[in-house]
Design a protein around this nucleic acid. Sequence first.
DNA 1: CTGTTAGCGCTTTCAG
DNA 2: CTGAAAGCGCTAACAG
Lengths: 342, 342
Amino acid sequence: MKVVNSVAVTIKDVARIAGVSIATVSRVINNTKPVNEETRQRVMAAMEENYFRPNAMARGLVKKESALIGIVIPEFKNTVFDDLIDGISNTAKFYKYDILLCLTQGELRNEIHYLNLLREKQVDGIILSSSSLKPEHITIIERPIIPCILVGQTSAVPFIPSVHVDNFSASYEAVITLINKGHRKIGMIRGPLGDNAAGEDRLRGYMAAIADAGIQLQPNWIIPGGFSVQEGFEAMSLMLGTGELPTALFVAADRTAIGAMNCLQEHGYRIPEDVSIMGFDDIDMSSVVRPKLSTVQYSSYEIGVTATRGIMKLIRGEGTNTQHTVVPHRVIIRDSIKTVEL
Amino acid sequence: MKVVNSVAVTIKDVARIAGVSIATVSRVINNTKPVNEETRQRVMAAMEENYFRPNAMARGLVKKESALIGIVIPEFKNTVFDDLIDGISNTAKFYKYDILLCLTQGELRNEIHYLNLLREKQVDGIILSSSSLKPEHITIIERPIIPCILVGQTSAVPFIPSVHVDNFSASYEAVITLINKGHRKIGMIRGPLGDNAAGEDRLRGYMAAIADAGIQLQPNWIIPGGFSVQEGFEAMSLMLGTGELPTALFVAADRTAIGAMNCLQEHGYRIPEDVSIMGFDDIDMSSVVRPKLSTVQYSSYEIGVTATRGIMKLIRGEGTNTQHTVVPHRVIIRDSIKTVEL
DNA sequence: CTGTTAGCGCTTTCAG
DNA sequence: CTGAAAGCGCTAACAG
């Protein structure tokens, strides 16, 4: 006994076919109350034979939960996000949650658009990657409040925890590494202004290390960059036009660093003989390019996992007391750095 | 006059506040029937002041549509998927659709799991990237039928259209290019068995080109590879252990090609002087590595856009008569290929 | 152990 | 132009 094929079979159909009430069907679906074994079998059979699948919207409507978490990220070109999503996806799957993906190109307008949309779709939680939290974000998230975790940088909002690498310390250590290798002329290609992590924290780490080593800061050795290979290339071109080159360069993102390396090489400079390069992120490409790029390593995958676990706690009202979770990092020395004789 | 902040405001609240019926509120939300301008203003005000957002689950339940499309892909490590998603995301946004993302690691079990889940979530359509369509997939998709488009390879199922590059012809042309450059000893690192596109079609293209050029096929020059840099490295190591090397190598995926290049270089071989390399995909990395990789270029972004448009047509019952859409490709010669004197 | 019933928030006839 | 009411598919009391 089957049902027509053109329209989805509902709990009602199953009930009729199995000769029970819809409540009973609901009980066997959710295992929520004891059901006579023989009845259960009959219901199960009816469900399988008719390819019954519960309607998540109907269920969600009454249970007031969607088993959906929203992810708001700028893009994928930066492979850091690939790992992040991967971590989120795997963890979410474990909790039987699904992912609603929103790509914003880093534009506030899009972020707001998607945040509103996620609200409408009734997601149970949101993992947000934004270059900086603005009042516009908060307004949407707080009424009524929806569990939200910021990834990639520190959040200053009380009810929005964050998961990120310690951008300041990591950058500090990266530059100190360069200093310990004998470098004194150290430039930086920093991230875009307005990006708290790559633009601000990493720059501050660089400046602190320079200062602590008693080195005079050279403002014209700090060049703005972005996140792409192309922007790295351009930033480097810019620096090449301004006179004396530093002996080492700290670049706020690996892709940018690789672009800078390409630019240097095309202009006949050798790495690391003429210029040493230190990146940040340890993306796949970094150990593939030649020379292999030295960089700051951390796990975006782990950020994804941690953020997702945090969201689950928030959803279950277990409230993360750990407002900010910092994932470990380490400086990796590969072939792009040489030691300078002092 | 506002409503408590701890729970979402509903159409009912808005109606009460604006002093109208919920039907009227619904009408102004959806612009579905004329409403007195003054009334409309009052309703709009009530909605804005109370941050009203329609509940998509409730709406979806009655309208029997979710404004959601599901994407099922293996992973992101292959940056081809980044562009794909990007294309899908942008196009979906245009149609006011959202994306439910499912990562399968290429495992059939996961694909089935997610396909079922997407069904439950009532997605209006599915964009699927699977190494090959199996009966298990079909069963889920066909009862009742849900709009689905396969990306990356040809579909043999009547009600599942596909969008992809012509893997056979593109590979054929790539190898012919090598032949035209004077190469006669041409090996291949192919994709994994069971992958129709990279594993089968691209291999057939290679073999056809070899055959058409009257070259004797050397089975031991065809090595299995995967999609990762690592697998390319290993495949190349394998080939290095088997005696004479071909003068040119066609590799079914750029990442694999890059791994192979690294392996060759580490063993002291020069590219392209000792071995010429031709890849497939034209990922970002390909023009970043040195030597720049020659490859087959096509737009995954365009595949995403086309597939999404197709899904929208399917959803609207406009039925795509174009069962298979092929996106253009072209062979790009960069620095990894040298011309052999005949 | 099982059935009846009241909604979840919204759209959509059907009257008025 | 507007309101009342039915119902989308499902869960969760509440009786029995």
